[in-house]
Simulated assay, not measured.
Amino acid sequence: MTGAVRTLGLCADDFGLWPSVSRGIARLARAQRLTVVSCITSGDAWRASAPLLADLPDSVEIGLHFNLTEGLPLSAELARAWPVLPALPALIAQAHLRRLPVDALRAEWQAQVAAFTEATGRVPQTIDGHQHVHHLPQVREVVLRGIEQLLPAPAVRDTGVLPGPGFGIKRQLIAGTGGRRLHRELLRRGWLHNAALLGVYDFIDTDYRGWMQRWLRALPDAGGLVFCHPGEIDAQSAGDAIAGARQRELAYLESWAFADDLAAANVKLGRVWRRGL
């Protein structure tokens, strides 16, 4: 294929959610099939998983996957308000009604960042949110203020530009619930972010390779970030709602088929963060 090589950032979400998921992600990262590992630090599995990050290649960044919808709060302050973290629809509704416990969310942010730094010895290199919660009203303000305190400054997943393909309603919901506002804030502040975000699908379609091929064709010349959810599955994580998708994504991403698809699309894996449009 002729033309300029485009760059794809590939971020595996949910490291630390289950030990088995973490093992699969770490395997891909060591094989340099990822550029970012995004970590959930609010559960017990984080402490068991964190040592897997110690020997990753320098080409793989390690970030925080800020979690407000899975399991239990990490901070005592948020646990008093929410003994169990809410489901995403309830969180979205409360955020847009501006009824979130903001002081407790600040404490939760600090606790999750502290859990990350204590285990890794450094601040997160990237910031995003589990189920994109980092862009929601009130949550967004907490996250942006929290990022201001982090040095060196991390890159932030921009959820405001989602070119597709497919799942237009889901992509519009992501952008409309806070992604576009986050995009404007990142541009105004001049912070590192991705030019485009791809990776939206329903976790049901078994043809993950087909989706990746379409995302590669849609990748802008400026590059973009694909978020993914690979992982191993064991008895502990068998109840995971997207267990089948995790296994399919892991199998494809560590296969030669993925390398072949990158080459066919004239795409390389690498950092895609930028400050402007």
Score class of each variant (00 low, 15 high):
Arg145Gln: 15
Phe66Trp: 08
Tyr201Asn: 04
Cys11Lys: 01
Gly276Pro: 02
Gln138Asn: 00
Ala153Arg: 13
Pro124Gln: 03
Thr35Ala: 04
Arg248Leu: 12
Gln94His: 10
Ile40Asn: 05
Asp240Thr: 04
Pro89Thr: 09
Met1Ile: 10
Gln131His: 15
Leu85Trp: 06
Ala119Ser: 14
Pro89Cys: 14
Arg214Asn: 03
Arg80Pro: 01
Ile204Ser: 11
Leu225Ala: 13
Ala76His: 14
Ile25Leu: 06
Tyr201Gly: 03
Leu262Met: 07
Ser237Val: 04
Arg181Ala: 15
Val156Trp: 06
Arg23Tyr: 02
Arg246Val: 00
Asp103Leu: 06
Thr177Trp: 00
Ala4Thr: 14
Phe116Val: 13
Ser237Arg: 07
Arg275Ile: 04
His65Leu: 08
Pro137His: 03
Arg30Asn: 02
Asp13Ala: 07
Ala222Glu: 09
Glu118Thr: 15
Leu219Lys: 11
Trp191Ile: 01
Arg274Ile: 15
His96Glu: 12
Arg27Lys: 05
Phe15Ser: 01
Asp207Met: 06
Asp205Ala: 11
Thr159Ser: 08
Val226His: 10
Arg271Asp: 13
Ser20Thr: 03
Ala241Glu: 11
Pro86Gln: 05
Phe15His: 03
Glu249Met: 00
Trp109Met: 14
Pro19Leu: 01
Ala195Trp: 05
Pro101Lys: 08
Gly164Lys: 02
Ala79Pro: 00
Asn67Trp: 05
Pro89Arg: 14
Arg80Ile: 08
Leu262Asn: 01
Ala243Gln: 06
Leu186Asp: 09
Arg189Asp: 07
Arg23Leu: 14
Arg171Lys: 14
Leu253Thr: 12
Asp261Pro: 09
Ser20Arg: 03
Ile204Trp: 07
Pro73Ala: 02
Gly176Cys: 10
Tyr252Met: 00
Leu10Lys: 10
Asp158His: 11
Ile242His: 10
Tyr201His: 15
Gly166Thr: 02
Pro163Met: 07
Val123Ser: 12
Thr7Ile: 14
Gly43Val: 00
Gly223Gln: 02
Arg23Asp: 12
Phe258Tyr: 13
Thr120Gly: 06
Trp109Arg: 13
Thr35Trp: 04
Gly244Cys: 00
Asp207Trp: 05
Tyr201Met: 03
Arg30Tyr: 06
Phe66Thr: 10
Gly239Arg: 03
Gln131Ile: 04
Leu64Phe: 02
Val21Met: 13
Leu56Trp: 00
His134Ile: 09
Thr159Asn: 06
Gln32Glu: 15
Ser20Trp: 04
His135Cys: 14
Gln131Ala: 15
Pro137Trp: 07
Trp273Glu: 05
Gly270His: 12
Ile174Met: 01
Ala95Glu: 02
Phe66Ser: 02
